[in-house]
Design a protein around this nucleic acid. Structure first.
Length: 782
RNA sequence: GGGCGCUUAGCUCAGCUGGUUAGAGCAUCUCGUUUACACCGAGGGGGUCGGGGGUUCGAAUCCCUCAGCGCCCACCA
């Protein structure tokens, strides 16, 4: 019997969760036709169609809020629907170590609060403590997954730093290196001086700040040797916010269409204070209406300048310009700077540099401007662009393959307007810097035959040196005595020469996305399930990681298996707070998971994730909505109670066919058309429509109209004043009506199950069953 | 600057390829109901569908344009 009174989600959800977990319904090995858990081998060979979804592993360093866990509702709805269609369903959960972000949280939330500092610790101790911190948080995250109803195979929950995963990821690195796809090179990087690491472009934020822009005169050198007209002026003025980097200028650039400067192109100017001669080049990106229209090019310390240098060099191979790095990782002036400034922090030296410029009469003036500063997402430190040697990955061939997957439809993106976003990103991909100077993550499987140092020489060139047996030489990436890419420490090998040499492992770890990008096949490989569940059916990810994660997974998987990792890519929208802004802790518009579940129940929360929402679209979750769905659940509860009440089970007719009452026929038509519609909606990944249809039809058509009409066939009529029974219902009519209502409400619980699993399962337990109905709604035939 | 999207009732949103008087939930007001459910039902008020222009027999829906908002990308030194 269903309990009297309003629906109690806390009680029901706990009971149903235990029912599912105790019976291991969540595992693909569970087969409802024999009602037991098979062995993995038996499962692999059984005839049910395979259906797989690998969960995006959440960052396991903090308690998630209701926005963070919205994806689970979608993953779960798809999985439950697939089970009800008789498929063997694998939903594999995981947890992410979150590289840079994870280390940042640990340093801030744990170490700094205890007054400790990472750099006073040994790498191994740091790693061990962080692992403990993560393992604790993993348990919390796993609990939330269960309680929101995610029907995942929790026995196969996997951490990204699991030894098996590490093995796969490092193998890929070695393979890609051998393939010539991974290389080491000196490039401009976004240097985070606080974290002492390079960070990716998309881990930086722009912030508007007041700054100064300085106008500095560069003398034009009259070059009479190359038969050109003499310059019409003896200096040009450049505008810059970073005067200290002028020592690293290797050119100044003007727009080729700028009539003010056409006479100067091809001539040279002299950098003040150090008297280095640099050419005047052209680039169409130089703005004519900003500053003076003359841009100083400092390829070592500005991303844009680096880009301009590359474009110029590609177009003018005989007149290449280089770079000179004049700011070190410690933010000190180095290389081709005046001797008096060498080794000093550039910020301290700046006023003196300005003074010196004034003294020689080459300082024009300064202005206050609004400027966009690049800061890192994690440490909020101002990014210092500089040259450093990094490991890179070439996307050549992989990106074309991924674009093709989407184009020819082996990967279908939902909603399809995201395809444009995807293509735009892919078309603009450049080589990816994959190394990070962190301790938390996968240390590079790279070994050096001696101590390696990175130095900036007198000319500002960044070079790596290696010291073997007291001899220091330039590090040669192709020399096997200098560098080896392999998982094992070379001293472990049989080769006696290698054994005696001192080998040093590269200090860097891989960028998180390098491992996340391999998540699908790495996890399936770990559990030896590639043969059955690869490629997976669908990936459900938040729309903001389409570029970072989803696209990389397609490229890595293509590299490894020449196949797509998933056949469908469903992008969920972002959950907004009541203020219409993205829900996030820093904005203070977060709703707490426990509080919401206690007040409204997981089902109500899940319904709010689906109702009227479309793929990729953001949506607000507010107490108003949650209250509404709690009431909906109660409506369902009461309707089920009413239908079951006073029902003679001996008259149960599982599939009412020969119907006498017009109302019966009307109700059967109603539920048939609703089912048709909802099935179509779900097949099209339109969960917003599916839940809207169910909500409307169930409440306002079935309950408000049809059940009310049915009462004249099922209820006795009483005298209003005396409450005496005037007439009893016709028993045949009543039985037919009851059976029709029970049939209908069973159909509704089935259709609602993917969205609100707890309450529907609770009701299902009390429903009379027919053949084909399973004891759990999870495996009842759709 | 480029790309994508949004703007419909006080609030949150539907309205799918143009076709009757533009819909729902919440909120509000009126009435009813205690033999499933006050976490209920019936009904009402409330909209010149962001502004302007165009195509059409017909536009919230298609096109152009302007304005505002959001997200992503980006080269204002």
């Amino acid at each position: 019997m269903l309990k009297e009174g309003p629906y109690n989600p806390i009680e029901s959800e706990k009971a149903m969760l235990n029912f599912w977990l105790d019976n291991k319904f969540y595992k693909p090995e569970f087969d409802p036709s024999v009602d037991k858990v098979k062995t993995t081998e038996e499962m692999k060979s059984d005839i049910r169609e395979a259906w797989a979804l690998i969960c995006p592993p959440p960052n396991a360093y903090a308690r998630p809020h209701i926005g963070n866990i919205s994806g689970y509702a979608y993953q779960d709805a798809m999985a439950r629907y697939a089970r009800m269609q008789g498929k063997k369903v694998l939903v594999m959960p995981g947890k992410d170590h979150a590289g840079l972000e994870g280390e940042g949280v640990f340093v801030r939330e744990v170490l700094e609060k205890q007054g400790r500092n990472k750099f006073e610790m040994k790498r191994e101790d740091f790693y061990k403590e962080m692992m403990e911190f993560f393992l604790k948080n993993i348990d919390i995250a796993a609990k939330d997954e269960r309680e929101i109803g995610l029907s995942a195979d929790f026995d196969r929950d996997t951490f990204t730093l699991d030894p098996n995963i590490v093995e796969t990821v490092l193998n890929t690195f070695v393979e890609m290196y051998k393939d010539g796809r991974i290389y080491k090179g000196v490039r401009i990087v976004n240097w985070d001086p606080k974290a002492r690491t390079a960070v990716a472009d998309n881990q930086c934020l722009r912030e508007e700040r007041d700054g100064k822009i300085y106008y500095i005169k560069y003398l034009v050198k009259d070059d009479s040797t190359n038969n050109q007209e003499p310059a019409t002026r003896n200096y040009v003025t450049v505008a810059t916010t970073r005067p200290e980097t002028m020592f690293g200028d290797t050119a100044v650039a003007v727009n080729p269409k700028d009539p003010r400067y056409t006479d100067l192109v091809g001539k040279t100017v002299i950098i003040p204070l150090i008297n280095i001669e640099i050419p005047i080049i052209t680039n169409p990106k130089v703005l004519t209406d900003f500053g003076t229209g003359v841009l100083k090019i400092t390829p070592a310390h500005a991303q844009d300048d680096y880009q301009i240098m590359q474009e110029w060099n590609a177009a003018n191979p005989d007149k290449k310009i280089g770079y000179r790095n004049v700011v070190s990782q410690e933010l000190k002036l180095v290389g081709t700077v005046p001797t008096k400034f060498k080794g000093r922090k550039y910020k301290e030296a700046l006023p003196e540099i300005i003074e010196d410029l004034k003294t020689i009469g080459q300082f024009d003036h300064e202005e206050i401007i609004k400027q966009n500063i690049l800061i890192t997402e994690r440490t909020k430190a101002v990014v210092e662009p500089l040259m450093s040697s990094q490991w890179y990955l070439k996307y050549d061939g992989l990106k074309e393959a991924a674009i093709e997957m989407v184009k020819e439809g082996s990967v279908q993106i939902h909603p399809d307007n995201m395809v444009q976003k995807f293509n735009h990103w892919m078309d603009n991909l450049r080589d990816w810097a994959i190394s990070r100077s962190l301790w938390w993550g996968y240390r590079l499987p790279v070994w050096y035959g001696g101590k390696v140092t990175e130095e900036i020489n007198e000319e500002g060139q960044v070079t790596e040196y290696i010291e073997i047996d007291g001899n220091k030489e330039v590090l040669d990436y192709s020399n096997p005595d200098h560098l080896k890419v392999q998982k094992e420490n070379p001293t472990q090998s049989e080769n006696s020469k290698l054994k005696t040499q001192n080998w040093y492992q590269d200090e860097n770890v891989l960028d998180t996305w390098f491992s996340s990008g391999q998540w699908v096949y790495a996890t399936l490989t770990k559990y030896d399930l590639m043969d059955t569940f690869f490629p997976t059916t669908v990936l459900v990810s938040a729309s903001d990681i389409l570029e970072n994660w989803d696209s990389r997974m397609m490229m890595f998987t293509y590299f490894k298996d020449k196949k797509e990792p998933f056949k469908n890519l469903f992008l969920t929208g972002i959950v907004l707070g009541k203020d219409g802004q993205k829900m996030s802790k820093s904005k203070g518009n977060v709703l707490d998971v426990d509080q919401i579940r206690n007040e409204y129940g997981s089902d109500a929360l899940r319904m709010a994730y689906f109702y009227q929402n479309s793929a990729g679209g953001s949506y607000v979750i507010s107490p108003d909505k949650l209250k509404n769905f709690k009431q909906f659940n109660n409506k369902l509860w009461n309707a089920a109670k009413f239908v079951l009440q006073d029902f003679d089970t001996t008259t149960y007719n599982p599939q009412p066919t020969t119907l006498k009452l017009d109302l019966s026929k009307q109700i059967i038509e109603h539920i048939t058309s609703v089912k048709e519609k909802v099935t179509k909606n779900i097949d099209n990944y339109e969960f917003g429509y599916a839940t809207e249809t169910l909500y409307d039809e169930f409440w306002h058509k079935f309950c408000d109209e049809l059940i009310e009409l049915s009462k004249k066939h099922t209820n006795s009529v009483r005298n209003k004043e005396t409450n005496e029974i005037i007439s009893e219902p016709n028993i045949d009519e009543k039985n037919e009506m009851k059976n029709v209502l029970i049939y209908t409400i069973k159909e509704y619980t089935k259709m609602l199950h993917p969205f609100i699993p707890f309450i529907t399962e609770t009701i299902w337990q009390e429903m009379p069953k027919r053949e084909g109905d399973f004891r759990s709604l999870m495996y009842t035939k759709w």
